[in-house]
Design a protein around this nucleic acid. Structure first.
Lengths: 181, 181
DNA sequence: TTAAACTTTCAGTAATTATTGAAACTTTAA
DNA sequence: TTAAAGTTTCAATAATTACTGAAAGTTTAA
């Protein structure tokens, strides 16, 4: 398969960004390719388009499935597996966000909880525990907040996103209402 | 310098998480060490505590300064430089967040803007451009939203964070108000 | 000035991470 | 069954990224 320069450009960019988004170059390219192509692709087509080995594609698909970013299609009378993005762009972004939260925040929260339970036995440890408590509280807030966002309907999210610069107005509003009651 | 087991544990954990947070193991450990120690540390103390070379510390400090995560102190009559976290835990988290946005989102927004201006010249490119537009809009929303959050005062942020499960109520409220006016 | 105290740089090397491709495995149709 | 069409695995190797330590650079006090 031959990609048009414009599409190739996009795919290569996804590769360069791959490691910043939490995967590696090849997997970044695979996501880009699948998202930019209307038709699902076979593993061989992917290997061919990206000029990488068949085995590498297999491992990449596996990884993308662990992120829940791809789904498999079957065409009657055809034994090959066809891959496409699993959901809308918005769905994919949400999953990446969620998965990264699990990898980047959850392990630290677990460690901090353990450490905080343990009692300090030197002045340095007292300070250390204060700091750990602060970090813990921050991460917990972020975690709860992101779980909250995940629970909102897409429409509510849109609504929230569109608030833009009026966020502070809404907060003020809420404060006023709470003060009354 | 000898770290107590509890503190060492935390520092090693920061190292393991380092690459997930956007830097590398050593730099993760350095952040952990600086945050957990009440007193600012010299480069030699850091090298000694983490058992890494002096050169490595120098490079790490440079990197952390580019993230604006450390600040330098001087003690009268002492030629050494003393390093400490640059601001509160909250400040540090904000800067990491902001810096990552710059690295993970901005380059893609730039690319997408360019690509979208260019006209499509095949059915595949028409679809590709639609997808790119969708991604662009999503990323732009996220960018604006995060800029908005950065602009809020710490108190407003606290207030917003504490909303928790009442986020949807506030949105509903706002919708109702808008409908009236 | 100079030399002591400190910091930075960077070439060479070590450690880590990603990729290939051949062999093993699985599924299906005849 | 069997063999063709496909997929997965994984040891070997390539590519990338991080680290060391010696040399060069900088600053300060005498």
């Amino acid at each position: 398969m031959n990609l048009s320069p414009k599409i190739e450009n996009f795919v290569l960019h996804c590769g360069e960004m791959g490691s910043r988004w939490g995967f590696n170059r090849t997997i970044g390219q695979m996501v880009g390719l699948l998202v930019i192509n209307e038709q699902p692709l076979t593993a061989n087509e992917i290997a061919d388009a990206l000029k990488i080995s068949r085995g590498n594609v297999s491992m990449g698909i596996k990884e993308l499935q662990s992120w829940q970013l791809v789904r498999v299609h079957h065409i009657p009378g055809d034994r090959k597996e066809y891959y496409s993005p699993n959901g809308s762009i918005w769905d994919l972004a949400n999953r990446v966000f969620e998965e990264r939260r699990k990898r980047e925040i959850d392990p630290t929260l677990t460690l901090l909880r353990d450490q905080i339970l343990d009692s300090a036995n030197s002045p340095e440890e007292v300070y250390a525990q204060q700091q750990m408590q602060t970090i813990h509280d921050l991460l917990e807030t972020v975690t709860k907040w992101s779980a909250e966002l995940q629970r909102l309907s897409p429409e509510q999210l849109q609504s929230l996103m569109k608030l833009g610069s009026s966020v502070s107005k809404v907060i003020d509003l809420k404060d006023k209402l709470l003060r009354k009651s």
